[in-house]
C-alpha cells in the first residue's frame, strides 16, 4: 500500500470539500472493498476521506418507502423490523452475503459500490485488464472463469458484480440519493449501474467525488411474496454462482406483478425485465416459469468456464419462482 493522507470529516459538506473531485482521493466507508484493493495495489489513493462519522446512518420510513442512510451496515439493515416483515428478499440477500463480521463493517452504500472479485482485476501483476488498465485487454476470458459473468459482458470484460443485496434492490426499483459538488440528485438503481460494454472501467454513473447518502427502498405491497435464493458450492460464506431475487404479487391465480433480479451472472446487478414481462398477467406454473427463465438469460455471452451458468441461472430462477409462488413443481 502506498502512503496516503487520512482525514475524517464530520459532515457531508466537509467530506465533499475534502474530496474535491481529486482523482487521487477516495472515500473510505466500511473498508471491506477499499482497503482490500489498496493492499492488493489496485487502488492507490493519495488521500482517504473517512466518511464513517458522517450523519448518514439509520433507517427511516418515508411514505411507502424506507430511506436507508448510506452508512447503515448490512447487519443493521437486515435487523430492521420493516425489512424483516415487508422486504424478505432484501433481508435474505443481506444475510446470505459475506460473514457477520463483514456485515458489521460493510455499509449499504459501500455494498452498492463494491468492486468485482475478478482475480485478474485484483492482481496488478496481470497486465491485461480493461477494467483496471483500459485498453489492455482481458486475461480472464481465456482463463478459468467459473466466478465470472455471462450477462452484460463481452470479450472485453467478464467481471461479475458480486453484490447480493444490490440484486434485490434493482428488482425493487430502489433509488440512490447522491450528494456531490454540483448538488443533490437521485438515480434509480436500474439506471445507476452501467453494463461492462465498451468501457469496463465505468461501472456506474456516480461522479468522482460524489457521495451516496441514502438508498430509498420502496416497500412491497402486503400481498406480495418475495425471497432470495443463492446458489453456491459452500453452504455459507461464498459469493453466488447464481442467485435470484423474486417478488410476486399473485391475485386470483394470476401474477399481477413480478420483480426479478439475478445475481452471479451480470456485469451489474441484473434486472430481468424480459422475464418479468413473461410472468405478468400469466398464471403461475412450471411452463411459464421456464419460459420466463429462458427470457431472463437471453443474450448470455459465455466462455468455457461460464457455460454452465446459463442453465444454472435458469434453474435457480425457476426454483425461486416456484418457492415464492408456492406452486407445486
Amino acid at each position: 500500500m502506498r502512503t496516503f493522507e487520512y482525514v475524517r470529516p464530520l459532515d457531508v459538506p466537509d467530506a465533499l470539500a475534502a474530496h474535491a473531485g481529486d482523482t487521487a482521493t477516495a472515500y473510505l466507508a466500511g473498508g471491506t472493498t477499499q482497503l482490500d484493493l489498496m493492499k492488493d495495489g489496485v487502488l492507490e489513493p493519495a488521500r482517504l476521506v473517512d466518511i464513517t462519522r458522517l450523519p448518514m446512518r439509520g433507517i427511516f420510513t418515508e411514505g411507502t418507502a424506507l430511506r436507508v442512510g448510506a452508512l447503515t451496515t448490512m447487519e443493521e439493515l437486515a435487523a430492521d423490523p420493516t425489512v424483516e416483515r415487508r422486504l424478505p428478499l432484501v433481508r435474505e440477500a443481506l444475510l446470505l452475503g459475506a460473514s457477520v463480521q463483514l456485515r458489521n463493517m460493510a455499509t449499504i452504500g459501500g455494498n452498492l459500490l463494491q468492486r468485482t472479485r475478478c482475480r485478474y482485476f485484483r492482481d496488478p501483476g496481470v497486465a491485461a485488464c480493461n477494467k483496471r488498465a483500459p485498453g489492455s485487454g482481458c486475461a480472464a476470458v481465456t482463463g478459468p472463469a467459473r466466478m465470472h459473468a455471462i450477462l452484460g459482458v463481452s470479450e472485453r470484460c467478464i467481471a461479475l458484480h458480486a453484490s447480493d443485496v444490490a440484486v434485490a434492490l434493482v428488482a425493487l426499483d430502489a433509488v440512490v440519493h447522491v450528494e456531490g459538488p454540483e448538488g443533490d440528485r437521485s438515480v434509480p438503481l436500474t439506471e445507476f449501474y452501467v453494463e461492462a460494454g465498451t468501457r469496463p472501467e465505468v461501472e456506474h454513473t456516480l461522479g468522482h467525488g460524489e457521495l451516496i447518502t441514502a438508498v430509498e427502498i420502496p416497500r412491497l405491497p402486503e400481498t406480495t411474496r418475495s425471497g432470495y435464493l443463492k446458489v453456491r458450492d459452500r453452504v455459507s460464506y461464498e459469493f453466488a454462482l447464481t442467485s435470484a431475487a423474486v417478488a410476486l404479487d399473485i391475485e386470483n391465480g394470476m401474477i399481477r406483478d413480478a420483480r426479478i433480479g439475478l445475481g452471479g451472472v451480470g456485469s451489474k446487478p441484473w434486472r430481468a425485465a424480459a422475464a418479468e414481462e413473461v410472468l405478468r398477467d400469466a398464471p403461475p406454473g412450471p411452463a411459464v416459469f421456464r419460459e420466463a427463465a429462458e427470457a431472463a438469460v437471453t443474450g448470455a455471452w459465455t466462455v468455457p468456464g461460464t457455460e454452465f451458468k446459463v442453465e444454472l441461472a435458469k434453474r435457480t430462477l425457476v426454483r425461486q419462482l416456484t418457492t415464492v409462488s408456492e406452486v407445486a413443481p
Binding site: 482475480r119 485478474y120 492482481d123 501483476g125 496481470v126 486475461a139 481465456t142 482463463g143 478459468p144
Partner: peptide, 10 residues
C-alpha cells in the same frame, strides 16, 4: 492455474 500464464487464479 491459468492455462496461459501459469498464474494461480484463485
Amino acid at each position: 492455474t491459468d492455462p496461459v500464464s501459469g498464474r494461480i487464479a484463485n
